[in-house]
Simulated scan of single mutants.
Amino acid sequence: MVDFVDEVRIWVKAGDGGNGCIAFRREKFVPKGGPSGGNGGRGGSIYFRASANTKTLREFYYHRHFKAESGKPGEGNNRTGADGKDLILNVPSGTVVIEIREGEHEVILADLDKIGMEVIAAKGGKGGMGNAAFKSSTNQTPRVATPGEKGEEKFIKLELKLIAEVAIIGFPNAGKSTLLSKISNATPKIADYPFTTLIPNLGVVELGDGRQFVAADVPGLIQGASSGAGLGIKFLRHIERTKVIIHLIDLSLPDVQNRYYSVRDELGKYNEKLLDKPEIIVGTKIDIPESKDNMEKLRELAGNVLFISSFTGEGIKDLLEGIWALLKKT
């Protein structure tokens, strides 16, 4: 069973308009009554709405075809057919709604980055006109009505970009999930092997005094991710909305500088704008003896380097205050 889905392609079909009606009045003492055919009802439209109760696009992974209700046909006595019901599809906040047109050309319809935002993706067809609408001075008994318009149908791509202020990135097994579990209410899966985290995790970090922010643990990147190595770059879109990047480097392993630049290189290949985001470089696992030798090598990268141990808690308070200071500046 798929637990987390952040991209899916679906088909939507708005309702057709109801047909107009051909009818004539049948009244006592009026042998040739005038036209009384009503118009057809409007077809239902399809909307996407950002909902606080939806966290993933999983529902759309299993159900990919959606149709709104068609309008009812018109009736005699000038009765208009009932409109078809609109279909409202709830998606997570942060979902980008994209129309896929001919030649796989993609057009963004909306970026639903706030709860309650909505966009119409497919418009319902207008109802047809009944014969009463065609009565004129020269045609008192029209025998014509029009069919309802067809509702729009489209292929839609939904792309979820998690809304977090802080992204925690780094090589696999650098301690991202462990750090998130220590500083927030998140409970990610944690184990001592690469690619334990297969989906992004979100956690709310409380600093006290009403200060809080949302952090995202992004699955590990490795060299060649932009070409599909490891988990590839499928989760990098979740970094795009963040304000601050926390780049974790495992100090218990060699080549700390090369591992840092490898991840930065992959970020740049995906989107150069990610390289402009404020970054804090964090050396992790300083409780392990082998890490001491690599601390100075990491300091050579930049002045904005911190060191922590998620196991002992050392340095975490300073890290959180540093994150908050950067968030206030952005």
Rank of each mutant, 00 (worst) to 15 (best):
F4L: 09
V5K: 03
R9K: 06
R9W: 00
W11F: 03
W11V: 00
K13C: 00
D16K: 14
R25N: 15
K28P: 09
G37V: 00
R42Q: 00
Y47E: 09
N53H: 13
T56Y: 05
L57V: 14
S70Y: 06
E75G: 04
N77Q: 13
D83G: 05
N90G: 05
T95Y: 02
V96Y: 01
G103F: 05
V107S: 01
L112V: 06
E118P: 04
K123Q: 07
G124Y: 00
G127P: 01
A133Y: 08
S136Q: 12
T138L: 15
N139A: 14
K150G: 07
A164W: 10
A167H: 07
G170N: 04
L179M: 02
S184V: 05
K189C: 08
T197K: 11
G203Q: 03
V205C: 08
E206Q: 12
G208N: 12
G210N: 08
R211F: 04
R211C: 10
G220H: 08
Q223Y: 12
G224I: 10
G224K: 13
A229F: 13
G230P: 13
R237Y: 00
H238C: 09
K243E: 14
H247R: 11
L248K: 03
L248I: 11
D250A: 14
L251I: 11
P254S: 13
Y261A: 03
S262V: 07
G268R: 09
L274D: 02
T284H: 11
I286E: 12
D287Y: 11
I288W: 06
K297A: 15
K297L: 15
L298R: 14
L298I: 13
G303V: 08
V305D: 11
I308N: 14
S309W: 10
S309K: 12
W324L: 12
W324R: 12
L327E: 04
